[in-house]
Amino acid sequence: MEYLASTGVLIGIYIILATSYNLIIGYGGLNTIAHPIFFALGAYTAALLGIDTGLPAVICIAAGIGVAVVASVALAVTTLRVSGDYLLIASLGFQLGLLQAVNNLDFTGGPAGLSNIPLTLGGPARGWLYLMITAALALVVIWLAQRSMAGPFGRAVRAMRDDEVACAALGRGPFAMKVVIFAFGCGAAGLAGGMYAYYYQYISPEQFNVAQSATILTMVVLGGLGTIWGPVIGAFVLVALPQAITFLQLPSSLVGPLQGLIFTSLVIVFLFLRPQGLVGTPVAGAAP
């Protein structure tokens, strides 16, 4: 049963990551792949604060969110003014550069990571407690995403995604909107990072690499870019599927390649048969 709880926590963390990433890439049309680095900033900030100061977890996680927001605004302000394509390159550089630093610095634990994150909410029901907290936070993030995208702000953001120049010519300044959704999305990733660090009590750089970017992107694309429930379903499927495969009790030499094969074919099948994702409505005028 503990196993179910831990799977649930992981799903909740990925729901937060995928939902916030979807705000940035699906609704905002901002092409960045650096989402895991804000996940990492939240995780490392919370972990280091917890280890070094012994402050309560809530404060450490809040600080992690703060650092992720500040870093995202810094990245947004320096790159978003230039052009959309520049963000993709800059975000990749930002992620690789920062991970390189984390890998080589002493205080981040280098490649070995940090493994002495203080135990918070111990006891027999620990898994279930974390599951409830993570699920509640995931619901809050979904709710905020839904609220912000359903109203006039979300309408302007979608208009900007569809045609930035036309949107600006109607009086909606694109720059401020981009910075706000980027900061909001990255702050949520920081929150996911803090929860991750405190639940697993162990973080290492490899959990935040480009493969992680691909996983979150797959969740969003599979579920449906620019929809509220798409990333939620994507997170469920992509966390549960690999776990289900391990239940088949196949030889471990098979499991890895099999998972890779299934992920890759899923993405390809979806790109061809259902580009709008599982829950998205087909875009009018687009190829079927």
């Binding site: 905020l144 006039p152 702000f153 309408r155 979608r158 995604r161 569809d162 949107c167 009086g171």
Partner: peptide
């Protein structure tokens, strides 16, 4: 035109003074 949006949504992007342009106010 904003191709993924309805006619009315397209129009509602247009007022000079836009209600809820701020994310917080919108939420």
């Amino acid at each position: 035109l904003f191709r993924t949006m309805t006619v009315l949504e397209n129009m509602l992007v247009g007022p000079r003074e836009y209600p809820g342009e701020s994310m917080l106010r919108s939420m």
